[in-house]
Amino acid sequence: MKNRSLMLKLLSALIVFGAWEIAGHIPISYAFPTFLESMAALARMTFDGTIFVAYAETLRPLVVGVAISAVLGIGLGLWIGLSKGFEWLFAPIFIVMQAAPLAALIPILVMIYGIGLTSKVFVVCIMAMPVIVLNTASAVRNTPASLKEMATSFMAADRDVLLKIILPAASPVIFSGLRLGVSAGFIGAILSELKITPTGVGDIITYSRSIADYPSMYAAIFSIILLAVLFLNLLEALENMLFEGNNRGYVSD
């Protein structure tokens, strides 16, 4: 049975990449290289090291931005979840941010902070923060009342309730908020490299497009999507492993 699933996955990949290859051979557009050409370009960039240099550049604002968003976002989210007053004050901002096309802020950020790293970090932050804040806040608010009551009945101090009940109970949802934040952060990092200044992978994409080296362009895009998907899947697997019990612990039969 496990074999069948694996076979179908391979078959599915074969169909899609095969279609890509054939479409490239027809070709459907002068700007549509074949799958194999793109993979050859990717291999070339990997062997001459270009891709690693590019990723070192691209991942910098992503890592810094996600780290800032995680610390600030979880802090704010805890606060919003614990205090009604703070919820009233801050939650609407993040609720609106969650629904709004924040990419539209990029031109203003560029005006204020220029075209350097600061702007890019900012873009990653505004993309990643709302989901982290809102997930943390709702996780804190949804801590099972009976668990808090249980701790109170054993005379737990407020600090103990926060550290031993609320935080562990909220951590699965906080973690999945972080994962969604990283996902949004990837969008922000790439967007800022394409919109603000071409650096890193954005530079490969923009440059190879300008000299019509389409295989390299497709290879760079393929690699960044692959990287993002692999990393997010890894986070999800980690999440399932860490919080296995939490998800099923409340089901009473």
């Binding site: 009551e149 249980m150 109970a169 612990g249 409340y250």
Partner: peptide, 12 residues
């Protein structure tokens, strides 16, 4: 000490 209807066990 209190025994809860929904057990109130910490799943973690």
């Amino acid at each position: 000490s209190f025994v809860f209807q929904d057990f109130a066990l910490m799943p973690w």
